[in-house]
Design a protein around this nucleic acid. Structure first.
Lengths: 142, 142
DNA sequence: CTTGACCTTCCCATGATGGGAAGGCCCATG
DNA sequence: CATGGGCCTTCCCATCATGGGAAGGTCAAG
């Protein structure tokens, strides 16, 4: 199987397959006479594994660990679970951060007339004059 | 004010102040005889504005737009609100993506013994043999 | 006058991905 | 057999926001 065929079979772009090789995640089974990379079913399976991990937000570093655990038939499932739990915690921390941003922004946007007038509590807050903790919108001049 | 003093006053690193200058977000008021950048209160205010925007997750591109609107006293608040709303939508999309990841991972982790045995539904899912839609955990051999 | 704490510019690195150039290989069609 | 198109190869560059560090200039305190 060429790199193009492996790409189609796995859903991973040829560019990325070469990159994963560079950082030692996967290697082609062999090179053909004309120096083309040759892949088999195992490699394609590995690529799909990587793709699924990436879609779950694992970094390539975590991916490397999980890939090693996957190939180690003697692994302890606790090791895998630990990687997963730590990743979950990381995701939840980022979600909480972004949710806080959304909350603040929604409050500001709610208080902003969004019309043709220049008064804008969003800008006031960004400029540090705002009072983001205030539940109510400041009265606007008419 | 030197770049170091402006950095302390604004909370933005000197490195970043220079970078913001390079991409034309802010400029020092002047250069001193010895070619040092000189900042005034206005510039520090601008830096704090940028910092607050970044902390709310705006990209530097959005930051540039909001900064221009901030400085434009004739702006229409609707323009600002639109940037904010679009950013909120973006954040919410990313939160939803990550929440879906967390949900899947939690299910998998819940089903994983996390012990010394090698059986691991997390790896099975990653390998594409799993059944992530299944609400229940598969029975494990004892 | 030395020392240390600043400042300047310039280059490099991150993480994951894509774009593109230059050159080689192979197959099908004229 | 020749040519063209579609692969493949390697190599370099760009992204986004940030930091690290080198090499060299400047300034103030001891």
């Amino acid at each position: 199987m060429n790199i193009g065929e492996a790409s189609k079979a796995s859903g991973v772009s040829a560019k990325m397959i070469r990159y994963y090789e560079e950082i030692r995640l996967i290697r082609p089974k062999a090179r053909s006479d004309n120096n083309y990379r040759i892949y088999g079913e195992d490699e394609v399976h590995g690529l799909r594994f990587i793709k699924r991990e990436r879609s779950l937000g694992f970094s390539l570093e975590e991916t490397e660990r999980l890939l090693a655990l996957w190939q180690d038939k003697e692994r302890e499932s606790g090791a895998v679970k630990q990687v997963a739990l730590s990743h979950i915690a990381d995701l939840e921390r980022r979600i909480a951060e972004m949710s806080a941003m959304v909350k603040t922004l929604k409050h500001l946007a709610h208080c902003c007339g969004g019309d043709k007038r220049p008064d804008c509590p969003i800008l006031e807050d960004l400029a540090g004059q705002g009072d983001a903790a205030d539940e109510d919108c400041k009265p606007r001049r008419r």
